[in-house]
Each structure stands twice: as C-alpha cells, then as structure tokens.
Amino acid sequence: MRIDFKLTRPTVIAVNVLLSNYDIVQFDGLRKNEKIHYSMRLELRNIFIKKTMSCHPAKEFKMKLNYYLAEELMKVLTEYFVSGHYNNGLEMLKNQLHPKLL
C-alpha cells in the first residue's frame, strides 16, 4: 500500500534538515529495534534528498511512500520539533499524513 501526499520544496528541505541528524549515528552501537527504525529513516533521507535535487523550486509536487515509510515519517515528525519557518510546512505535512495512516 502506498500513501500519496503533496509537498512544496521548503517542506522537503525541512524534512531533510530533520533527518540530517541520522547521518552521524553509529549503527554498530544500536539495538536491533533501533537499527530497524534507523535504516527506515536513512531510506527516507535518501528519498527526500533525491526529491530535493529533482523538484522544481516553485512548484508543488506529489510524493508516494510505502505505508511503513509514511508511518516512520509520521513518527519522526511527531518526535522532533523544528523551530523557525520550517515548522509550518512540517505541521501541514503531519496534517496530510495523519488521516491517511489511520
């Protein structure tokens, strides 16, 4: 099952900022359950980096994620708070994902 949602370029950049924290985590020191979440978040990071590179700066675009990745993205969005102008786009993304994941 795939989840569809719309994004703007600033929202994609905000998600990349949020997921950038996982670039420095050491995989060897994690427990099995943490490794599962870490690998899904790295997969999300790769998807969003590719989308950032390929999307037009002024256009809104659609994105599709597998259900398990959309669920993990929702966990990331609810766990972390980003201050500043990124917060509005992330809140709108959470509001789009929440009803689709129920």
Rank of each mutant, 00 (worst) to 15 (best):
I13S: 10
N66S: 10
L44R: 06
K51P: 00
S83C: 01
C55E: 12
N21G: 09
I3V: 15
R31K: 13
M92W: 04
I13W: 05
L7K: 02
K35V: 04
H98S: 13
K35G: 01
R45W: 06
S54N: 12
R41G: 02
V17N: 15
C55D: 11
P57A: 08
K32V: 12
I3T: 11
F48H: 06
G29T: 08
M74A: 10
K35P: 01
V82E: 13
Y67Q: 07
N33F: 03
Q96V: 02
I13L: 14
V17M: 13
L44S: 07
V15H: 08
E43F: 02
N95G: 00
N66I: 00
L102H: 09
S20I: 00
C55R: 06
S20E: 14
N95C: 04
A70P: 08
H85A: 13
Y67S: 05
P10A: 07
H56D: 15
R41P: 04
M1V: 02
L18Y: 09
F5R: 04
Y22K: 05
E79M: 05
V17Y: 14
D23I: 00
D4L: 06
E72Y: 00
Y67F: 14
L73C: 08
E34R: 06
R2H: 12
F5K: 01
L30E: 08
N95D: 15
K32T: 13
T11Y: 04
K6C: 03
F27M: 05
N16C: 15
K64E: 15
L73Y: 09
M74Y: 15
Q26E: 12
V15F: 08
A70I: 06
L42N: 14
E60F: 01
H85N: 10
E91I: 14
D4H: 06
D4S: 06
D4Q: 08
P10W: 04
L77I: 05
A14Y: 06
K94T: 13
E71A: 10
L65R: 02
F61T: 13
A14N: 03
G29S: 08
T8L: 02
Y38H: 15
A58N: 14
N88I: 07
K51I: 09
G84A: 11
P99I: 11
V25K: 13
N21H: 07
H85W: 03
H56L: 11
L30I: 05
N16A: 03
P10R: 06
N66H: 09
E34H: 04
L19H: 10
C55K: 04
H85E: 15
L69M: 05
H98L: 13
K64V: 01
N88C: 01
P57H: 10
N88V: 07
F81L: 07
H98C: 03
D4Y: 02
L18D: 09
N66A: 11
E79S: 14
